[in-house]
Design a protein around this nucleic acid. Structure first.
Lengths: 237, 237
DNA sequence: ATACGATTAAAACAACCGTTTGAATGGGTG
DNA sequence: CACCCATTCAAACGGTTGTTTTAATCGTAT
């Protein structure tokens, strides 16, 4: 109906973006050819280069259109929390909800491709492709510039370096929860068809527990039970 | 010295495996050609097909030789803990140490390619390549068959499904901590050159905090501060 | 010295890659 | 109607992919 703003129907350009998004998450980045994309989009082979200039530009646009909206929502959620706090630090759980919860909501949307895109995004975070890495870094810069200071204020006693690392860990847990396809799926048959919405409370409490974990708890690993274990423990190599 | 068991020197076969391992983590799986591999290994182009039969078989062997040893060490560490516990449940921190700590130790070894391989492994967990996915699943089956029951025993009050999910999250945090290359690296300049050994206590306490997190803590997200936020919160879509 | 099995070497194979070209098509405007 | 501009189309471009082939080379045991 009012989907395509000025155009008439899902035009070729959008079909290419949707097809590319779905194929990238399935076959990877270099494993998807322009012929596969144009074939799935029922478009001519030259359509990719005509509409986007190159395959790389297509990839960039696939990320841009979704990531821009996601990060806009993230910042809006943080704005709302900070306005409600009226000067006081926002609670960590609220900050995590604004950042990761917003992303998980997008991942729970299976009808408009949000789920597909979040799988692609999680997967891309470990793909070191040069130009897309820089693109992601630029796209994230603005959001992190807001969320990290908010966490610093919320946890004034935790060293900033530690918060940075834990944010990194949390990104990993979320990416993996959405995109991960490891051996665990062998055991739990209902990892695929699990309601993505139920994933949200599970992951959020895990993240919050990790963020709040005692700093030096690790020290207890070695002397907790094993008396001498010099290689069985966790000593650095 | 006693590296190459029966052969004389680092022979072509091993040079191919090492070169492939390093190139895969840098340029990805499909982004690495047999010519790049044989070139880096200073071998003839046909060497890959002669020694391994195909490029896919090479990939499989790259994972097999390292993963077999890693999982052997993991099981040995768990064996030791269970022997020391003499029937009693092993503490969660010990189990995590045996599984994730062992992997992190391998990742801290930058001299024998352990670090390179762990980056590759973390990256591959989100790469849905068909045949390597099944290969990883088979390789992990044995280890998970031991570690998950151990966690069930250690945390009898936590639903098994929840433990499964949290194990999944922990895998993600670890993979990302080693292989991740997201926008955070823009902020933290010392993410690359950071001593991998210092990563171990950081990650372990994060994982333990997440594993022990209260189950229903998430419920507090919505009513904690925001009174009505219907789209700013975490409600499922 | 000779013959042999294992390894390496150089060249070629068809298939596919991303991209470009130039002509056909089609609806909207003068 | 004629014009035009955007889009689509079929075909081809040079280059790279994984793999195969055939000959040359090596160390070793006969």
């Amino acid at each position: 109906m009012s989907d395509a703003s000025r155009a008439s129907v899902p035009d070729t350009r959008d079909r290419l973006l949707d097809a590319a998004e779905a194929l990238f998450v399935e076959h990877g980045f270099e494993g998807t050819s322009t012929r596969m994309i144009t074939g799935a989009a029922r478009a001519n082979l030259a359509a990719v280069n005509y509409h986007f200039g190159s395959k790389d530009a297509l990839v960039q646009e696939v990320f841009r259109r979704r990531l821009a909206e996601l990060n806009r929502q993230r910042l809006a959620a943080l704005d709302r929390l900070e306005a409600e706090a009226s000067g006081a630090p926002v609670r960590p759980s609220g900050i995590l909800g604004a950042f990761f919860g917003t992303a998980l909501q997008l991942a729970a949307d299976t009808e408009h491709g949000g789920h597909t895109f979040m799988r692609l995004l999680g997967r891309t975070n470990t793909e070191p492709n040069a130009f897309i890495r820089q693109f992601l870094a630029e796209e994230y810069a603005g959001v992190l510039g807001r969320f990290l200071p908010a966490l610093y204020r919320a946890l004034p006693d935790v060293p900033r370096e530690e918060i940075l690392w834990r944010f990194h860990f949390m990104m990993g847990a979320m990416s993996y929860a959405i995109a991960g396809t490891d051996g665990l799926q062998l055991f739990a048959g209902r990892f695929d068809d699990a309601d993505p919405a139920r994933l949200i409370p599970r992951l959020m409490s895990f993240l919050l527990g990790g963020l709040r974990a005692p700093l030096a708890e690790f020290g207890g690993f070695r002397d907790e039970r094993a008396g001498e274990g010099d290689e069985g423990g966790l000593a650095a190599a």
